[in-house]
Nucleic acid binder design. Structure first.
Lengths: 137, 137
DNA sequence: AGCTTTTGTTTACAACTGTAACCATTATAC
DNA sequence: GTATAATGGTTACAGTTGTAAACAAAAGCT
């Protein structure tokens, strides 16, 4: 049953950058990845390939045959990865409370009108969901 | 003018634990720190002391004389530390948008009534602040 | 003053990260 | 079909992190 690395899987800073690349543009050949990385970070080909290897070992990406050529593609979604780190941060720094995070953050950082509106919308949505559930209960 | 480490200063997981200890209870002697750490994480004395040293080097904590005894105390606030990491995570994983984080988070994690209320309150507060500023402009 | 305990400093070491050169294999070009 | 270029795999190496033993200095005890 070889436990499919569903457990830890954290990405390092450098690994994130490779993943960004792959998330943006589904399957990419090694060539494509190294070129893009070269452009956006200045990494040498080798560096990118090392990252691809490590990500492969971690189970974060896989390889596939597209018309003869081997290509890399993400096996975890950006959302998943982001969430994992978010949970981490929340528990480490905010006792798991997202509202605490928001509070701390806004103490230093001004939010744009759009962000505020979006959050209102989100909260409203959440309340709806909650109500539905309550009705069903 | 020896630039007072105002630049990077990130805490590792282990370092956070020591800091938590110090944030909870202002100045603590080495003894007290190591004892608490032993209790809550099982670390050996040495390990805690190493962390204290590294934190000192980073400028995250300092030492003070309290009635003859040397004691350690935080030089950065928990809020500051948390904020630093939050900004990090936001830029790495959410294009810097806190509303995006909230959205992603709530897709997986249910929020309690209290959290929702708190956030409403926070947003309202922010709007007030914004208005005041607009008037003043 | 000499021995014991407490406390702090130095040193160690394996795992993980960032970075990349070097080598092997495969595909291309003449 | 051999030289050349493209691609991918192996090895390296310094810095950081988690963890702690060893060693040194200070404080107490008798």
């Amino acid at each position: 049953m070889e436990k499919n690395q569903v457990k830890k899987l954290t990405l390092t800073e450098a690994e994130w950058q490779i993943m960004e690349c792959l998330w943006e543009s589904a399957p990419l050949t090694g060539r494509e990845v190294t070129e893009r990385m070269e452009k956006r970070t200045g990494w040498s080909r080798s560096t990118s390939l090392t990252m691809l290897r490590r990500l492969g070992e971690k189970g974060a990406i896989g390889e596939a045959e597209g018309d003869g050529k081997k290509a890399f593609l993400p096996l975890i979604s950006r959302d998943d990865a982001a969430l994992r780190e978010t949970e981490d941060l929340l528990s480490r720094a905010y006792h798991g409370s997202v509202s605490l995070l928001l509070s701390a953050f806004t103490k230093k950082q001004r939010l744009s009108r759009e962000e505020i509106d979006e959050m209102y919308a989100l909260l409203a949505e959440l309340e709806n969901k909650n109500e539905e559930e309550t009705e069903n209960a």
